[in-house]
Design a protein around this nucleic acid. Structure first.
Length: 195
DNA sequence: CATGGGATTGACT
DNA sequence: GTCAATCCCATGC
């Protein structure tokens, strides 16, 4: 199984967001199939890159096919795939995975201090959950998704032609009307099945 | 240099 | 349904 090449990401971010559904994220032999994504583009105010080129947003304007990882609410790491040619600030947020390999490691990493072990459907059903389950951290920011520690692989035959739903993005306060969220229909690992 | 606001989650009422 | 945890960094004085 080969990782997606950088050229895959050097296209309109909405296309990439849709086509990443069914692909898989792998880190350290722990992996899952992408079942939910959101697109962000510097032309709209929900995107970090909307403010222009700053130290924080520099990866978004850089090479497509790299990871953009940032900390959210002081707690969670968010994994994005940088898209479009350099100079355009755009990325796909990976919001949920269907666990594929390394389920035991995921459970261990996602088990809280209380000792409560999440069910399979809760292991990676959110952007903060999946980075915790795969141990993706801020240090993975800017690394290549084709040749770095975190890799994204093309759809296997099993995931060819997935049934994709679209809706508005979650958790944002601006550009709330854009239907730039994509998820796999009827999949229980999606963070919020209903729009 | 001080401030404020998150692309969230889990615990609790 | 409400709410706090907690850190990076953009913004403004």
């Amino acid at each position: 199984m080969r990782p997606l090449a950088p050229e895959f990401y050097a296209r309109p971010v909405l296309e990439v967001a849709r086509e990443l559904i069914g692909c898989s994220v792998c880190h350290d032999r722990v992996s899952g199939v992408i079942v939910e994504t959101e697109a962000y583009h510097d032309s709209e105010p929900a995107c970090h890159a909307f403010v222009g080129l700053t130290p924080r947003t520099e990866p978004l304007f850089g090479e497509p096919g790299r990871a953009y990882v940032y900390r959210s609410y002081g707690i969670h790491a968010m994994l994005n795939a940088v898209c479009e040619p350099p100079g355009i600030g755009a990325a796909v947020l990976i919001r949920a995975l269907q666990p594929c390999a390394g389920l035991e490691q995921m459970r261990a990493r996602r088990t809280g201090p209380g000792g409560r072990v999440p069910a399979d459907g809760e292991l990676c059903s959110g952007p903060g959950k999946l980075t915790q389950a795969l141990a993706i951290e801020l240090s993975d920011n800017r690394t290549s998704l084709s040749s770095g520690p975190v890799r994204i692989h093309a759809r296997t035959a099993e995931w060819r032609d997935p049934a994709i739903r679209t809706g508005v993005r979650i958790g944002i306060s601006r550009a709330v009307e854009l239907p730039w969220r994509f998820w796999l229909a009827e999949n229980r690992h999606v963070s919020r099945p209903r729009p």
